[in-house]
Each structure stands twice: as structure tokens, then as C-alpha cells.
């Protein structure tokens, strides 16, 4: 059948040898492979050092979003309700994670580096409603932590917003 019958027998030796090797599978839930430092995962909203929100409700992120998953409703800051340092703040800030494609355009569009994409990727839910993240969820520290690879392993510049804030 085959031109080199012996070569097809050699294949059996190859497969047999693999039996004695350690499988190279990474057992995922137990072992989480460190993600690339600039991995784009779940969003975060940030605050200034003094506790005010960086977001000023300009909706540029919503405009930049190709998946149309961000909803921002802005409201004026008043002296007795000062949420952000600017004129306005985001009264409602929602991201529909079932639509988000994790492109990071919101991050680029934001003039105040108020929204960034974090490293967390374990964000599945049983219900679609649970995938609409509110402002409180995005402002809070993420519950799950993901191992991140050492930045020095990669030729990765430190993002501007982490260097100058």
C-alpha cells in the first residue's frame, strides 16, 4: 500500500514512546498560566488618590466602543455631591460584558485614564443579566486575581497612566 512500509511501522514506535512522557497539558483550574502583562480582561474604573472618581462622564468611551456595550449617563457635580473633579460625573456607568470584545478602544479614548482593562478573564456567569457590570462593580477591586507574568520577561513599556498619576 504505502511506498515505504517500514516507515509506517516507525510511526508506531513514535506513538509508543509518548506513553512514557509526561503530558504537557496545563491543568487549568488548578494551574493558571500567568497572563501577558498587557492582557486585556475585565474592565476597571479608577479613582484619584483623594477618592474622587477619575471618570467625568464624557461618554467618549461609549462613542469609541465598536460593540456599543458601554452606557454612560452623566450628571452635574454639585458642591454637596462632588463625585469627580470635573464639571460632571457618570451617574450611570454600565458595561455589557456579553457584548464587549475586549478591544481596549475605551481605554484609548478616555481622556482621564479613568477606564482600563484589567487582567481578569474568569468572568462567566449563569445569567446574561449578571454580565451587565454597574459602576460599583467596576470601581471595586476585582474579587478574583489572575497571575500576571513578570513584566521584565516582555519588552513591555509601562503604560503612561501608571507612570504619571
Amino acid at each position: 500500500m504505502s511506498p515505504q512500509p517500514l516507515d509506517s511501522v516507525k510511526g508506531f514506535a513514535v506513538t509508543f514512546r509518548q506513553l512514557f512522557k509526561k503530558p504537557i497539558t496545563q491543568q487549568y483550574p488548578e494551574y493558571k498560566r500567568p497572563v501577558y502583562p498587557r492582557f486585556r480582561g475585565r474592565h476597571r474604573l479608577h479613582r484619584h488618590e483623594n477618592g474622587l472618581e477619575k471618570c467625568v462622564g464624557c461618554s467618549l468611551c461609549a462613542a469609541a466602543c465598536p460593540a456599543d456595550c458601554i452606557r454612560v449617563v452623566a450628571e452635574e457635580n454639585t458642591p454637596d455631591n462632588r463625585v469627580s473633579p470635573g464639571e460632571r460625573y457618570a451617574r450611570i456607568y454600565e458595561i455589557n460584558m456579553s457584548r464587549c470584545i475586549f478591544c481596549g478602544y475605551c481605554e484609548l479614548a478616555c481622556p482621564f485614564d479613568a477606564i482600563t482593562l484589567g487582567n481578569e478573564y474568569e468572568i462567566s456567569e449563569y445569567s446574561r443579566d449578571d454580565l451587565i457590570y454597574t459602576k460599583d462593580m467596576l470601581l471595586a477591586e476585582p474579587i478574583k486575581k489572575v497571575p500576571v507574568a513578570d513584566r521584565d520577561l516582555y519588552d513591555t513599556p509601562i503604560p503612561y497612566y501608571q507612570d504619571h498619576s
Binding site: T15, Q18, L19, K21, P23, I24, T25, Q27
Partner: peptide, 10 residues
């Protein structure tokens, strides 16, 4: 199991 081990899987 055997197929897995022969293909370096578990």
C-alpha cells in the same frame, strides 16, 4: 486514556 497519553495529553 491511552490515546491521550500517546498524544501527550492526560
Amino acid at each position: 486514556k491511552l490515546l491521550g497519553r500517546m498524544q501527550n495529553r492526560f
